[in-house]
Design a protein around this nucleic acid. Sequence first.
DNA 1: TTTAACATACGAACCGGTTGGTATCTTATT
DNA 2: AATAAGATACCAACCGGTTCGTATGTTAAA
Lengths: 207, 207
Amino acid sequence: MLNFAPKPRRNAAETRERLLMATVQLMLRQGYAATTVDDICREAGLTKGSFFHHFENKEAIGKATIQWWGAFGTALYAEAWKEEGRDPLEQLRHFFGIMIGFTEREDQVCTCIVGMMSQELAQSHPAMREECARQLELWTTNCARMLAAAKAKHAPDADFDPEAVAWYLNSLWQGSMLVGKTEQNSALIRSNLRMALAWVEGLLSIS
Amino acid sequence: MLNFAPKPRRNAAETRERLLMATVQLMLRQGYAATTVDDICREAGLTKGSFFHHFENKEAIGKATIQWWGAFGTALYAEAWKEEGRDPLEQLRHFFGIMIGFTEREDQVCTCIVGMMSQELAQSHPAMREECARQLELWTTNCARMLAAAKAKHAPDADFDPEAVAWYLNSLWQGSMLVGKTEQNSALIRSNLRMALAWVEGLLSIS
DNA sequence: TTTAACATACGAACCGGTTGGTATCTTATT
DNA sequence: AATAAGATACCAACCGGTTCGTATGTTAAA
C-alpha cells in the first residue's frame, strides 16, 4: 500500500545519515583530526544542536564512520563470493577485479578511511584503533576463506598459510592505496594488484 | 684537554635539533594535525618565541621532519649496498634484513613518518604530499637499482620490471607497517617481508 | 500536550602565530 | 686587548580566531 502521508520535514534517520555521509566525505580527504564538527555540520547543512543530538561526540561519529566504510566495502567485495558453487580461484580473480575497479572510478581518489584512521590514530586513540583492527580482520577473514578453498581444490599440498597470505594481501592493498595516493598514480596500484594476483596463482599451481 | 668552560646557554644548531627531534617523536605517535606547536615546545623544553625563530611555521617543521626521517632511513638502508662488489642478490637479502631488524626494536612501534604524513596530508596539503612523494621515490630508486643489478647478474631473461617491483615492495612495506601497527603485531610484518623476499628470489631464479 | 528533532547562542580551552623585550654571542674598531 | 655596535637566540605575554561541547530555546510530530 502506498504511503500518501507527506514526507515529514524532519526525519531523524535521514538526518543522521546526512551527518554520517558528510563525515565520510570529509575524513576521506583530510583525516580525523583535521575534520571539525563545524565542518561536518556545514557540509551536512545542519547545526551543532542537531549534530550533538545524533552523536554523543566527535569520537562517536568517527567510530560510526569506520563502521560505515567497513559495511560499504564488504558489500562491494561480497560480489566476489556470492555465487556459492563458483570456483574459489575464480572468486579470487573477481576479488582482485573489484579492487582494480575501485582504482578506476572517475574523479575519485583511491583511498581507504580505515587505512587513514589507522595511520593517524592507532597509537594515540585505542578505541579507534580497535575499530580499525576489526575492519581489517573482516577483510582478511573473507580473503583467507577464499584462499583456503582455492588451496583445497587446486593445490592441497601447496606450502602456504591462507591466513598469512591474506594478511600479506591486505597489507599490499593498503600500502598500494597509500603510495598510489602520494604518487598520484593509480596505475601503480593496478600494477601491484596484477603482480600479487600472479603470485597467488603461482602459489596455487603447485598441485 | 678538557673543556671546563661552561656549556653555552645558547646553541642555535642544538636548539633547532631539539625542536626537530621533539617533532619527530610526537608526529610519529599522533601525526601532523594532532601535534601542536605548544606540544613541541613543551617536549623540547623551549618556548614559542624560540620555535618561531627557528621555523617559519608549523608546515616548515613538518617538511623538515619528513626530510629528517628520509635521511635517517637512507642511512639505515645504505648498509645494504655500501659494499660495492657484493652480489646484488645478497644486497637485497641484507635490505630485507634491515627492514626485519626495524620491526624488532625494543619498545618501539614499527611505523614510518612518511607513510603517516602521506595518509593524512596527501589530498589536503600539496606541498607536504610532494615532500612525501620525494622520499618514497628515493626508497624505490635504491631498491630498483639493486633489483636491476640482480636481474642482470642472475636472470637477465626474467620477465619483470625492476622499478615496478620496487614500487610493489615499497607498497608492501608501507602497508605492512600500517597493518602491523593497527593489529599490534610486528610478527605479521616479518611474515610479509619473508614472503616478499621469497617471491623476489623466485623472480630471479628463472635464469 | 508531550516528546523528539532541530536551532541558537555561548563558553572555556586551545590553536597557530606575533609582539616587545632581554640576554648572549660575534665582529669591527681602536 | 678592550670595547662598542650590531646580529642572533631566546622568552613571556598576548592576539584573534577556532575548537569541542553545553545550555537553552523553538518547532514539528504523535
